[in-house]
Design a protein around this nucleic acid. Structure first.
Length: 705
RNA sequence: GGACUCGUAGCGCAGUGGUAGCGCGCCUCGUUCACAUCGAGGAGGCCAGAGGUUCAAAUCCUCUCGAGUCCACCA
């Protein structure tokens, strides 16, 4: 069978295209844009198969379907992938510079894109390619600018030096949700801090990071500490720098940990930063953005923080009271697994509480599948902190802010003075110096800042096009649970904020496909399964069916190439079965045909009843996004009822049964088309038909018998 | 420390109140009339365990054990 031929036939016939001017009711499905960091994997194949089945189903039901495809630039992840690729050629960001680097990055993007794009077509995705969007293209740029500008005007944006989670390898701040934790066996050091102007008095703090003591600017103890209460208000001596630092009480210190006293390093720990703010402590830096010691560290300057730890312990010498083994979880970058270094950096933030409040009021309008995700997302949004949106990367939407290089060399944020919010270089002059020395903010926006408005930017927001009016809110969105906060929650908040309406009516979380040990598929483990391999061996239709059997909402699946082969093989056999049924009914047609449909024969009545039941089941299950059940009931009906029983029995009264055979088979193909688009088209075309394609034929309805 | 999900035949999974299912694998038989990429038949599960609700529980509730995921400022 020539799948390519049918795909071309559909595409050239314009069947994939949505028509905003049509009077048909709209049904919009938004393809989650895959990251342009590599070929499509099995999870994508499943996700896209789900979307395509629903799109084809809704089209046949008479909706004006928009299945909108697109790809994501995936800022941090793309840069990591691309930099690795460059390293192989002996190149780097430093060697190339921003412009040359960006040029090469676009070429690299194009290569990956081609593979993704052809992968989609191979799988039979019936998307409206004329509306395809890339998150860095001009149209999205305008939407992102509008988003940024609105936030600015609504006073929801601020820039400042705050403690952030810094990935030294990626060279950028990341968000809490972009980190994961690794359990490590380290040491817990109990360090004595002398009390100033006293003889031999001291208090002890416990720390896992003695190298940060250089930047300690205070010691906090929990309220009413039996031993240390008396020192409150005194000064302690920083054991590494000899600086005097205040001792004070704070309820955030855990009574049951260590000695009950906590060294405060506002420059290198989020909690310490908070406590430091409340007690007006100065902020010092002893570790820089490359994870090396600053000159605050005296003789240890320039050392990697990790190496500095042991040396610091040596210098501390007698100040170390005891050392314990200590197992704790250390934050690492989700992308590159580098240990995160909390430090102070100037970043942009969005105030989220007004957005969160609005989202919480309306989130119940979204039908989450499975239902428990409503609670999961609600809880997360309730407890939301401000969104750090700037990334020190090159691949992304440049922050649309220009500073006067002359009056505002430190890129400070004011209002309409020596800075301007603008996509292009401002034409006007600086209000302070009346000259033009505009310099753009060097950072780019978090990837999710653009994908968060994906439901709108794909429909030409901020222009109020007929597309935006017709297809927003989307009817169906799907995703892996992995990015429920990063992406789904953001789309909900941003959609409500800017469009005053939920972004999608149905939110379907599919499960994650994992290997047989339950591990995620990853390049480093080499446990991935190439959907193309399955497709080539068993055919696209069979591969899709195998994937639908894993498509129960919210259920993870375990798979290996072998288990996928087992399932796909079954459906390849099913494809063969369909071909043989067609041969029997069409090619080996009796010379004379009996009466038209619905004789009074008991067998005919039985199969028609069974068909009606199947129509009901399949339709209902598709409406409820239970694709695995819909596919299963069709398989059961066609193979074990229609073929095994009805066709067998029909051989005794072939001519009389012919009409029923044709009718049941044709209807079955139509029901099966959303799942197995290619073989159903191929066989349907051989049966008597009116419409040009099974794709545009009407979805079967039950018939009276 | 919180929240959530799962534990069903050798393996991969469905079934969420009414006699235990699917695929692969396994066993027996069968190539003449669509199909051996097949057909007919079969073996294999006290649905993790214990208790409870109910006329009725794999399905609802409680607890225990086991597997996993997510969230949290573990100094």
């Amino acid at each position: 069978m020539d799948e390519k031929k049918w795909y071309q036939f559909w595409e050239e016939s314009g069947f994939f295209k949505a028509d905003p001017t049509s009077s048909k009711p709209p049904y919009g499905l938004l393809v989650p844009p895959p990251n342009l960091t590599g070929d499509l994997h099995l999870g994508h194949a499943m996700e896209h198969s789900i979307l395509d089945a629903l799109a084809r189903f809704k089209r046949m039901q008479g909706f004006d379907v928009l299945l909108l495809p697109g790809v994501d630039h995936a800022g941090i992840q793309f840069e990591a992938t691309f930099d690795k690729h460059l390293a192989k050629e002996g190149l780097s960001k430093q060697k190339l510079g921003r412009d040359a680097w960006l040029k090469k990055a676009w070429q690299f993007k194009e290569e990956i894109y081609n593979s993704v794009s052809s992968g989609w077509r191979f799988m039979g995705l019936s998307a409206d390619w004329s509306r395809e969007v890339f998150t860095l293209e001009e149209k999205v740029q305008k939407a992102v600018f509008e988003e940024f500008k609105s936030f600015w005007e609504q006073d929801l944006l601020y820039k400042g030096a705050y403690i952030v989670q810094w990935c030294p390898k990626c060279g950028t701040a990341i968000e809490d949700i972009e980190m994961e934790y690794e359990e490590r066996k380290e040491k817990l050091y109990y360090v004595k801090y002398k009390i100033d102007e006293s003889n031999g008095l001291y208090l002890t703090v416990a720390t896992a990071r003695p190298e940060t003591i250089f930047a300690d600017t205070g010691v906090a103890v929990y309220p009413f500490h039996p031993k240390y209460k008396k020192y409150i208000g005194e000064q302690a001596v920083n054991p590494l720098t000899n600086a005097s630092i205040p001792i004070f009480e704070d309820e955030r210190v855990d009574k049951n940990f260590g000695s009950g006293a906590l060294k405060i390093t506002p420059g290198h720990d989020p909690l310490d930063f908070e406590i430091g703010q409340d007690h007006n402590l100065p902020i010092l830096h002893t570790i820089d953005k490359n994870s090396r010691m600053t000159d605050l560290a005296g003789g240890l300057t320039g050392l990697k923080a990790q190496e500095a730890r042991e040396k610091a312990v040596k210098i501390l010498g007698d100040h170390i009271e005891k050392i314990e083994d200590y197992i704790h979880s250390v934050p690492v970058c989700e992308r590159c697994k580098t240990t995160i270094e909390p430090l102070i950096s100037k970043e942009w933030f969005v105030k989220m509480s007004p957005l969160a409040d609005k989202a919480l009021k309306h989130i119940k309008k979204i039908n989450f599948v499975p239902k428990n995700y409503l609670k999961i997302l609600t809880v997360w949004i309730k407890d939301l902190h401000d969104w750090s949106i700037s990334r020190s990367l090159w691949w992304g939407h440049r922050i649309p802010v220009w500073y006067c290089g002359k009056c505002n060399p430190n890129h400070l944020v004011g209002k309409d003075k020596d800075m301007v919010v603008s996509l292009e270089e401002p034409g006007k002059t600086c209000q302070t110096c009346s000259q033009k020395h505009w310099v753009q903010d060097g950072q780019v926006l978090d990837t999710w800042f653009s994908s968060g408005i994906w439901p709108m930017s794909t429909l030409d927001y901020p222009e109020n096009t007929k597309e935006l009016q017709k297809y927003y809110p989307w009817d169906f969105e799907t995703s892996a649970p992995e990015i429920k906060f990063l992406w789904i929650a953001r789309m909900i908040m941003l959609g409500l904020w800017f469009q005053n309406e939920i972004p999608f009516r149905n939110m379907f979380f599919h499960g994650m496909l994992r290997d047989l040990q339950g591990r995620k598929f990853s390049k480093s483990l080499g446990n991935g399964i190439d959907p193309n391999g399955l497709r080539t061996q068993w055919g696209t239709d069979a591969t899709r069916m195998a994937l639908y059997s894993y498509a129960a909402a919210g259920r993870d699946g375990r798979a290996s190439r072998q288990t996928m082969d087992e399932r796909a093989k079954n459906f390849r056999n099913f494809t063969t079965k369909l071909k043989n049924i067609a041969r029997f009914i069409i090619e080996l047609k009796p010379a004379s045909q009996g009466p038209a449909l619905r004789t009074q024969d008991a067998d005919d009545k039985w199969i028609m009843d069974e068909l009606n039941k199947t129509i009901k089941t399949v339709t209902k299950n598709l409406e409820e996004f239970k694709l695995h059940l819909a596919a299963e009931s069709l398989y059961e009906f066609i193979w074990h009822k229609f073929a095994d029983i009805y066709i067998e029995k029909s051989k005794d009264r072939r001519a009389e049964a012919q009409s029923t055979l044709e009718y049941v088979f044709k209807t079955s193909l139509e029901l099966l088309h959303p799942f197995m688009p290619f073989i159903t088209e191929e066989l349907w075309q051989k049966l008597p038909h009116k419409e040009k394609s099974i794709m545009v034929t009407q979805w079967p309805s039950t018939k009276q018998t």
